[in-house]
């Protein structure tokens, strides 16, 4: 019970508080900027050469205010925002009028989550296992060769690396499609041909993300393992003739994993901001492109929708991490 009272409840309160503050910030920040979204929209329409008579403009402003949730005092607007959020209503998108934001996000989300969840987890697992072994056996030839490879790959700018992969494997050797999330014209359905097409299209983006992400995890893990390896308890177990397999798994890797678990939790939270450059290079659907379009077209509702989703995702990831971490490290456990 002490666990619930002293560990769980404070963290749940913190969780709710962070989301509350985050949403409040999302509410306040656009209202502090000098640009008026309504004037901006009307100016846009006018710049396209449309004539608007004053009555229409008044009506238009009224409609826009309603859509943006800009009616009434600041306090009324704020309460209305929360009321809408609890209904799951983020308003209507402007850049694809009149599709609701929730529909647009819902359309992009599976692509982003599917691609980034897989690659984040995969690169974490691979990078940590290989990095852990390379760190433990850092004097071996193969470990030094891997370390050198990682040192070459890591500083490459992502877009150059992704383009090179795309050119080599999509254009020069036509192994993989060069654009899209699935074959054009194929209806999304739960069938083998469709899934196969999705996997096929996602291969190159996933490969590029896994290699670069994995290299990052590899390098950190290798360093951490080399440090843990020099710790007294590892040296002592070696002097005690403890089996090497036990030393590697239970002494070195288990301790080296601790900071990596934290980093994984944060990386998982980041997923919901999308991967803009990947999506652009591989013309892959997802939240990154959606957010980018929302920003350049001044689609406030959409920006707010994605931002709030991100806030909730990252906070949830941190909460999950906080709750799971005592399983890995007894030192933060409450008795």
């Amino acid at each position: 019970m002490a666990f619930i009272r002293r560990y769980l409840i404070p963290r749940l309160i913190q969780y709710v508080l962070v989301i509350f503050l985050g949403v409040t910030a999302v509410f306040i920040i656009p209202r502090l900027t000098p640009t008026d979204p309504i004037a901006h929209t009307i100016a846009q329409i006018r710049s396209q050469g449309a004539y608007l008579d004053p009555a229409t403009v008044d009506q238009f402003i009224q409609d826009l205010k309603e859509l943006y949730g800009l009616e009434g005092s600041m306090w009324d607007q704020y309460v209305a925002l929360w009321r809408r959020l609890f209904r799951g209503d983020f308003g209507v998108s402007f850049f694809q009028f009149p599709t609701p934001v929730s529909v647009l996000v819902g359309r992009a989300l599976p692509w982003t989550v599917g691609l980034l969840l897989t690659t984040t987890v995969m690169s974490w697992v691979l990078g940590n296992i290989i990095g852990g072994l390379a760190g433990y056996f850092s004097r071996k030839r193969w470990a030094q060769a891997l370390d050198f490879t990682a040192m070459v790959i890591r500083p490459l700018p992502y877009y150059i690396f992704a383009f090179t992969l795309l050119l080599l494997l999509g254009y020069v050797v036509r192994l993989f499609p060069i654009a899209g999330g699935a074959e054009i014209g194929r209806r999304p359905e739960f069938s083998w041909p469709y899934i196969k097409s999705v996997l096929w299209h996602s291969f190159l983006p996933a490969l590029s993300l896994t290699i670069l992400g994995g290299t990052m995890w590899f390098q950190t893990m290798k360093l951490i393992v080399q440090n843990v390896n020099a710790e007294s308890f590892v040296q002592y177990a070696k002097l005690g003739g403890v089996k090497e397999s036990i030393i590697v798994s239970k002494y070195v890797i288990r301790n080296a994993m601790l900071p990596q678990v934290t980093a994984l939790g944060l990386a998982l939270g980041q997923i919901f901001s999308g991967a803009l450059i990947t999506e652009i290079v591989f013309s892959y659907p997802g939240l990154g492109t959606l957010l980018y379009n929302a920003v350049i077209t001044g689609d406030y509702n959409l920006i707010m929708g994605i931002t709030i989703l991100s806030i909730v995702a990252i906070t949830t990831a941190i909460l999950a991490l906080d709750l799971l971490y005592p399983l890995f490290d007894p030192r933060v456990r409450y008795r």
């Binding site: 308890f233 002592y236 002097l239 003739g241 403890v242 002494y251």
Partner: peptide
């Protein structure tokens, strides 16, 4: 031949129980 190390503050694996450390040493021999 066994060894009692200098500064046993940090010679025990911090993330496992004492009995696990004992088990690792026993199991290996």
């Amino acid at each position: 031949i066994s060894y009692v190390p200098q500064g046993s503050m940090s010679v025990l694996n911090p993330v496992i129980k004492i009995k696990e450390t004992y088990r690792d040493f026993l199991e290996s021999h």
